[in-house]
Amino acid sequence: MMGLNIVLLFKYVPNTNTVNVDPNTGTLVREGVPSVVNPHDLDAAEFALELREKYGGKITAMIMAPPNATKGIEFLLGMGVDDGVLITDRAYGGADTLATSYVLAAGIKTLEHYDLIITGQETLDSSTAHIGAQLASWLKIPYVYYVTEASLDNGALVVNRQLESCTEKYKVKLPALITVLMHSHPPRPITLENKLRAVIKKPVMMLTNNELKLNIQCTGLRGSPTVVAKTEFVSKIPRKKEIIKDKSPQEAAAWLISKLKDEGFLN
């Protein structure tokens, strides 16, 4: 095999705790909120770069998002990714994960060839971890979540992954999709050289529905079986809120011990 042709999927997410949901449409309000590449996708990017270093090949970063996500592609180019594809169209807005993965699958099918799709474990803003499995379902390819290591063996991929109480090793036929365990691959820094290359080469390709030619009944809000019907504030759990301050550490500790005794924690 002449290197690995990798598609790196990522999301450009609002970098804040104050994101809200539009009460009318039930979708995320993104306007005016600064965004970043989803941190867990940076682990995936690092993972992809390490694979490319080992086996050669090429990495294409792909996203379905409004046009400002080009900045996210530029960031990844700065890390060393080769190309970027931005899939963007008004008809794709307001999509749930089914409709998102549908469009992404169509985007991937426009690529001449791919061996491996890599995604992050989940996103910061919705953390569903759906897209990987849904894409595998659309593309009818094998998939493995929570991958920590991968190597090539006679044209197949051997991956290690980590679950709650075990690790597993699989041999996977290519093309395949993997999601990378979060926190497993801290990303390398952006280099000036890569950044310059990105500016000069402008290797960002745009795909709209003119190219993908999908039935717009199947994309965006229309193609989404789920809708956010409403949002509500969580009720707080009633707590005793007995708080002491301005006490010496000894007094404070003795007070806590007495509470622990009263509650039966020290029997």
Binding site: K236, I237, R239, K240, K241, E242, I243, I244, K245, D246, K247, P249, Q250, A252, A253, A254, W255, L256, I257, K259, L266
Partner: peptide
């Protein structure tokens, strides 16, 4: 503190060693 039953305002570096002493004693 809004979500606590019992709260101590203080430096953990001072409070916890005292707690540990008392628990050790018990």
């Amino acid at each position: 503190f809004e979500s606590a039953d019992y709260g101590v305002v203080g430096d953990y570096k001072q409070v916890i060693p005292e707690l540990i002493k008392l628990l050790d004693g018990i």
